[in-house]
């Protein structure tokens, strides 16, 4: 099958890969680049486990084709911590015990990051609606919402 050459920036690094026209961004990340942090929960854009940030916007990686990515800037969970330093959201998820099995966690962290970049001071309701595309079956969302709200406080404080 013919493969297309694509050059994209992933977590700040220029990455060249080839992909067939049917491959999604999720396939490319997981099957070809072996970046397994982006999770596959449904493959149909319903669970949010594969959320990545594409050109500044959160997307379901399973709904984006690999061939669309030439010149794109992609941020995945592997790029969220800076070296050994966790992002405030990652820290707060640990502090608030906002994960159990952890399969939804990478997607929720990136969705929350995109949410706080757009709205640094969200209400509880805004966090809930902001994360409504990301399913979590373990936590009942309570501790996730608290962690995001607490991270927002810290991120605002560190900016001011």
């Amino acid at each position: 099958m013919a493969r297309n050459l694509v050059t994209a920036t992933i977590n700040g690094d220029e990455v060249e890969f080839t992909c067939s026209t049917e491959q999604t961004l999720l396939d490319v990340l997981r099957e070809d680049l072996h970046m397994m942090g982006t999770k596959n929960g449904c493959g149909s854009g319903d669970c949010g486990a594969c959320t990545v940030i594409l050109n500044g916007r959160p997307v379901n990686a399973c709904l984006v084709l690999g061939v669309e990515l030439d010149g794109a800037n992609i941020e995945t969970i592997e790029g969220m911590a800076k070296g050994n330093e966790l992002h405030p959201l990652q820290q707060k998820f640990l502090d608030h015990a906002a994960l159990q099995c952890g399969i939804c966690t990478p997607g929720i962290l990136l969705m929350a990051k995109a949410l706080l970049e757009k709205n640094p001071d969200p209400t509880e309701s805004e966090v809930r609606f902001g994360l409504a595309g990301n399913l979590c079956r373990c936590t009942g969302y309570d501790k996730i919402v608290r962690a995001v709200l607490d991270a927002a406080v810290e991120m605002r404080a560190s900016k001011s």
């Binding site: 970046m35 397994m36 592997e78 969220m80 990652q90 640990l94 994960l99």
Partner: peptide, 9 residues
Amino acid sequence: DGPDKVTGR
């Protein structure tokens, strides 16, 4: 097991 789960590892 937290750090491995929040970093995708």
